[in-house]
Nucleic acid binder design. Structure first.
Lengths: 126, 126
DNA sequence: CAGTATCCCTTTGGATACTG
DNA sequence: CAGTATCCAAAGGGATACTG
């Protein structure tokens, strides 16, 4: 091809469907839900307790999205009263390593980042 | 024992400041901006051209956020007409590996995820 | 060139009440 | 128990016009 060689990231293409996928799966509540489901399959209200700030509405949306993308499974366990169990799928498990890498990074650099924020905020009002 | 061994992720704590940090830095446009700045320092309108869908407003917001978090640097290179160069910081470079891991994952599993989506969507309307 | 200001619309998300 | 429905407030983001 006529184009010059480009760094790896470029070829990975953050532009199109990858970006959309990550949006679906890295949103506000997904990581916490995933974290919980990695530990144990859970029912709807278990998850609400595990992530106390989430509303039923948002939790439903999050679970549906993760289910649609094949990251979590949903199984109706019994009826009367209906019980539904959510669990992580094999595909969902493969997602764990990159997410952990992200969290490790965040943890490692949070102090540095907080210093950067303070420096920035201070410089603004001077 | 009173507590079973727990997976790593739990101890990493996705709940509080990590989540907020990742929100700041993994938003809609950040990855594309970062990708571009990893390749070369760029000026404002270079970035607009590299990410054609972004508006000036959103690009400004993205750059300010990344700058505040110490991920990108901003330098006024000349005046009349003013030129401003954005570049990735050393801290920003450390962010690259986890992001690449994410993109590699997305790329590797996108077909599988698309099948999952189709299956889900089809099941819904049956 | 590198933004800022304004307007406005769309999306997101919480609170609350209700249902199979 | 596991959601859905409705209402509403706040945030996000685009288009356009303007500025140092």
């Amino acid at each position: 091809m006529t184009d010059t060689a480009r760094p790896l990231t470029h070829d990975l293409g953050v532009g199109a469907p990858h970006r959309e996928l990550l949006d679906q799966v890295l949103d506000k509540w997904s990581l916490q839900v995933l974290e919980e489901l990695c530990e144990r399959p859970s029912r709807f209200n278990d998850l609400r307790r595990a992530v106390p700030e989430v509303t039923a509405k948002s939790l439903t949306a999050t679970l549906r999205r993760l289910e649609r993308n094949g990251i979590v499974g949903r199984e109706v366990v019994s009826s009367r009263p209906v019980a539904v169990e959510y669990s992580i799928t094999p595909l969902g498990k493969t997602f764990r390593d990159p997410v952990d890498a992200l969290l490790v990074w965040a943890r490692a650099h949070l102090p540095e980042i907080q210093r950067a924020r303070e420096a920035f905020d201070e410089a603004e009002y001077r």
